[in-house]
């Protein structure tokens, strides 16, 4: 039985590599560079990750059909309101039709930019399940990645944001 589990575990590693739902990288030199992208918001304005250099950026991959994403949005709004005056940006990257994103954004009164995601960006960030949040440091490196939502998510997000803002 143990032998079977061991073989299974090894095969999973071969199949998937590391499949952590939460990862934070404290050592800045060990952080991977975030893939650059340019996406448009619901009004057609362009947002480029390259232009955000010097700021901490929270990227939230989400969709209107995703119940846990909906639960997380009020907490993201609270974070945005709290840190928007600092060197901090929060962009929602919607993996959905623009019309659905538009009506949802209005209903939930999302104050931060909602960008229309593409499969290219989703693939570049290896987003398989949502919500997935990336927190990018001021030098454009991935400081933290969180997949999934649980109640009180803002606490762990804030912890990482503060850490990166202080670097």
């Amino acid at each position: 039985m143990m032998h079977k589990s061991l073989i299974s575990s090894l095969l999973i590693v071969l199949l998937l590599g590391c499949n952590s739902e939460e990862s934070t990288v404290s050592d800045p030199s060990a952080r991977a560079t975030a893939s650059l992208f340019t996406l448009k918001d619901l009004d057609g304005r362009e947002y480029s990750l390259e232009s955000a250099r010097g700021k901490v950026v929270l990227l939230d991959f989400w969709a209107t059909w995703c119940p846990p994403c909906k639960k997380e949005i009020p907490e993201l709004i609270a974070i945005y309101d709290k840190y928007k005056e600092e060197d901090f940006l929060l962009w929602g990257i919607g993996l959905d039709k623009p019309a659905s994103l538009e009506s949802f954004s209005q209903k939930y009164a999302i104050p931060y930019p909602v960008l229309v995601g593409t499969s290219k960006v989703q693939s570049a960030y290896a987003v398989k399940a949502i919500p997935t949040v990336f927190i990018i440091d001021k030098l454009g490196r991935i400081g933290a990645r969180f997949q999934g939502y649980r109640e009180g998510a803002e606490t762990r997000l804030e912890q990482e944001i503060r850490k990166l803002l202080n670097e």
Partner: peptide, 25 residues
């Protein structure tokens, strides 16, 4: 949960340890 209006469109998963929820399309 399995979601979708006329056909299945997504599922909601919950981590049984951390209770984190995710959706898959």
């Amino acid at each position: 949960e399995i979601l979708g209006e006329k056909r299945a469109e997504s599922v909601v998963l919950k981590n049984v340890t951390s209770e984190e929820e995710t959706s898959l399309s």
